[in-house]
Design a protein around this nucleic acid. Sequence first.
DNA 1: CACCTTTATTGATCAAGGTCAACGAATTAC
DNA 2: GTAATTCGTTGACCTTGATCAATAAAGGTG
Lengths: 189, 189
Amino acid sequence: MDKVREHIASLFKLSEGQASIFLSEFTRKEFKKNDIFMESGKICNKIGLIERGLMKCVFNKNGDEIIFEFAFENNFISDYYSFLTNTPSAKEIRCIEDTTVYVITRESLERLGRDHPFIESMSGQMNQMLFLKMHDRLKSSLLDSAVERYIKLISERSDLVQRIPQYLIASYLNIKPETVSRIRKKYII
Amino acid sequence: MDKVREHIASLFKLSEGQASIFLSEFTRKEFKKNDIFMESGKICNKIGLIERGLMKCVFNKNGDEIIFEFAFENNFISDYYSFLTNTPSAKEIRCIEDTTVYVITRESLERLGRDHPFIESMSGQMNQMLFLKMHDRLKSSLLDSAVERYIKLISERSDLVQRIPQYLIASYLNIKPETVSRIRKKYII
DNA sequence: CACCTTTATTGATCAAGGTCAACGAATTAC
DNA sequence: GTAATTCGTTGACCTTGATCAATAAAGGTG
């Protein structure tokens, strides 16, 4: 858990002690490839923090999946929208690889927040990071073509591209695998 | 300013006193239709709160504008992305109607934040509201067709639709005015 | 190693929405 | 009231990316 703690401490500018307090309420869980971490339709009452492995968070659009996000080592994974609004999740979270994840429940987090003011500030920072991230993606979806989105992704997220099959990358970019293949043929290699 | 104060107090669950403190640092400004509130390319160092009127916040995509958002009575108006990240704004904010707006600068807000802890919590709430809003729009842009986006908008934001010319609605939905016209012909009237 | 499943590529065709141009209605300006 | 913009509608055509189908390549599994 040390690497995760270090990462969290630096991300939220926490002391070692604070990071330890925060992580003390997490429980380690193991998932196999294709296991479901969170079912669609339920209110999301937990937040995961991935030690090892890879998950995807997907919408279902009349039968086929549209990837909302990926999460791997040191990333949080949750439907934070459902978590905040207390509404049933429109997303499913599933493992793409065998994954080890530390999990905290809503209750534990709230209890922690009552005892430790720094948790409140973490949640503020989290909201801000998520706003910025959503903004970036919305902007890209408003302004960029499929080609531009793909080119940006492979230059900015080569970590993802290396690790994730092309048809999942396509889904994340909201384009079809065939189109990705054609873009690659035309612009790369 | 009373209506605005009331609105802010209820939105952030502030006491009358807190709302007054918050608003004390705002300066009233008047703009005419077509006046620019914030130029593209500059770091956004202010937040407006509209008392009367209507503004649009737009991206420029090779010459033509794509509307990021509208703001009117009781709404905040800013490029909060630029504000938070301290990076030059990719958006321009311009008045669609004559507009009266209360404006606070970054420095004033920071000063206020140092003296009054409740301001910190307001900013946390603001980040959360913006995350949720961005999330909704991203989701819609991932899952919905032009027709679905338009139908949703007219049912959910009839206030906007009544007040804003069709070509601006089109731009907000990231579709062309001709397409809106065709959607209306096919599904409405 | 041979088989089976999953993933990627390619071609042919299709659909959604964009582009361009013309026209008409509505506003605004003089 | 007439001219001049601005805005909305319509038609013809075009582009992007989706769909469908076939095939090839890669990875797993017995």
